[in-house]
Amino acid sequence: MRIGNAASPEELFELMLEATHEAVGYDSASLMTVDAAGDALIVRAARGSRLEGTRVPVGPSISWQALERRAPIVIEGPAAPSLGTTYTKDVPFALCLPLVVGAKTLGVINVNRGGHPGDDAVAFLRILADQAGFAMERMELYGDLQHFTGQLLSQEEEHRRRLARDLHDGLAPILVSAHAQLQSAAVDSEPVQKATALLRRAIRETREILGTVRPATLDDLGLVAALSAAARDMADEAGWTLEEAVDDPGPLSREAESTLYRVAVEALNNVKKHAAAHEVRLALLKTEDTLEIDVADDGHGFATEQWGEAGIRPGHFGLLGMRERLAFLGGLLKVQSKPGEGTTIRIVVPRDRLR
């Protein structure tokens, strides 16, 4: 059913009412969910009347009774005295279907129409309500997962910022000072020359670590400038011809900005290490719904499906880590490559996960 493909709770609720109308038709209908405190039902979607946002506190309403009984309630004509409610809505037929999953009560669907739709239609609506309950539960779990992964990303990013600050303010100045002391000593001996060379290497590698952990350009200038600087540095080192085509991505959360930077830089590093490329293209494209980053080269290439998943093979373990990191943002990493025809790595992330 289409309700399983909804991208948001609001879309899910509208699709559920639409599916209900297609199944039995109605004069009016509403979908209500239990609020976080569990003491009221809130109308989340309605057809035939403007009820969205209406709160129904715990009480004798048939909606709450259906939840308590965990079974549909059918009313033909005036409500029976045993229901303890004056619910009639001046309609000949009303049906209240609870939305439950296991022991959890999620909400109800209320349907009002001109007559009984038949037992088969009611049975179908019960199946639809079960499917809707499962869809709501999945969406709630997915929302919890998004919140949890967002917390993980925030914690990781803060850890990286502290590490970058410690390296920048602590280790890096010590290495630079030690190198300067050796040079100023003016001692021409092989051990001193080796020590000086090792310090230069340590300084260079510390700068590379700083660039990977959290480059200063990312904080100072943003994603586009930081990516451009990294790509140009690699082009100078590797001898590429670099082509850039970048859009302004707009506001980004710190976690999203850092994730996109690290994945794109890893893609560039893969080119530097494995591709033997002469030309590299870095592109950042903003569409209505997504942000895309392409890293394309004219190097060796390797065998993979058209825009498919690159297999785990020597030199390409990093692709798995890149995909896992993008998954935290709901993003994808696609690979297009053929031996002798270069490689394109495409990063695609929904824009609503970037703020």
Rank of each mutant, 00 (worst) to 15 (best):
E14M: 01
L41V: 04
E10G: 05
I174L: 14
G150H: 06
P215H: 03
R351N: 04
G25C: 07
V192T: 11
H159W: 09
L51D: 12
P173L: 10
L171R: 13
L284S: 05
V56I: 15
L99F: 03
D144C: 02
A202P: 04
A121G: 08
L326P: 05
F134Y: 12
G25S: 07
T344H: 04
K194A: 10
E288N: 08
G330M: 06
L319V: 04
A37Y: 01
L99E: 03
M136K: 01
V100G: 01
D90G: 02
K272S: 12
A29P: 02
L332S: 15
A216F: 02
S337A: 13
F317E: 13
A40N: 07
N112T: 02
T88G: 00
G331M: 12
K273V: 01
A303S: 15
A238K: 14
D130M: 05
H21A: 13
L41P: 02
R325A: 15
N269Y: 02
D294Y: 12
E341G: 00
V58H: 06
L145A: 14
L282A: 08
D120G: 03
H316R: 13
V187P: 00
A267K: 04
R353Q: 14
A230W: 01
T304N: 12
E18T: 11
D35P: 05
L285A: 13
L171V: 15
A129V: 01
L319K: 03
H168M: 05
S49A: 15
L332P: 01
E52D: 12
R232G: 07
A230L: 00
G77E: 07
L284I: 14
A277E: 06
P251I: 01
A19Q: 12
T86N: 13
R201T: 11
V263T: 10
L125W: 00
G299N: 10
R162T: 12
E140T: 09
D27M: 03
L141C: 00
V43L: 04
L285F: 05
L145F: 01
F124E: 12
Q181N: 07
D233Y: 02
M16Q: 04
G118M: 02
A231M: 08
K104L: 12
D39L: 00
G48S: 06
P249T: 09
R162E: 14
V246R: 08
E158Y: 13
S8C: 08
G250M: 04
G59P: 08
L218T: 02
W64E: 05
H274S: 02
L95F: 00
M234S: 13
A276Q: 11
I42V: 15
V271A: 08
H278K: 14
D219R: 14
V24T: 13
H316M: 10
D298F: 11
G331V: 11
P9R: 12
G25V: 06
R201E: 14
L182T: 05
S28Q: 11
G170K: 08
D294C: 09
A36R: 15
Q306N: 10
F302A: 11
G170L: 05
E137F: 06
L333N: 07
Q181I: 08
F328G: 00
T241N: 09
V349C: 09
A231K: 09
M139F: 01
L51G: 07
Q146M: 08
Q65P: 00
L97W: 01
L125F: 02
F317R: 06
E255R: 04
P72Q: 06
V108L: 09
I345E: 08
T304A: 15
V101A: 09
A66V: 02
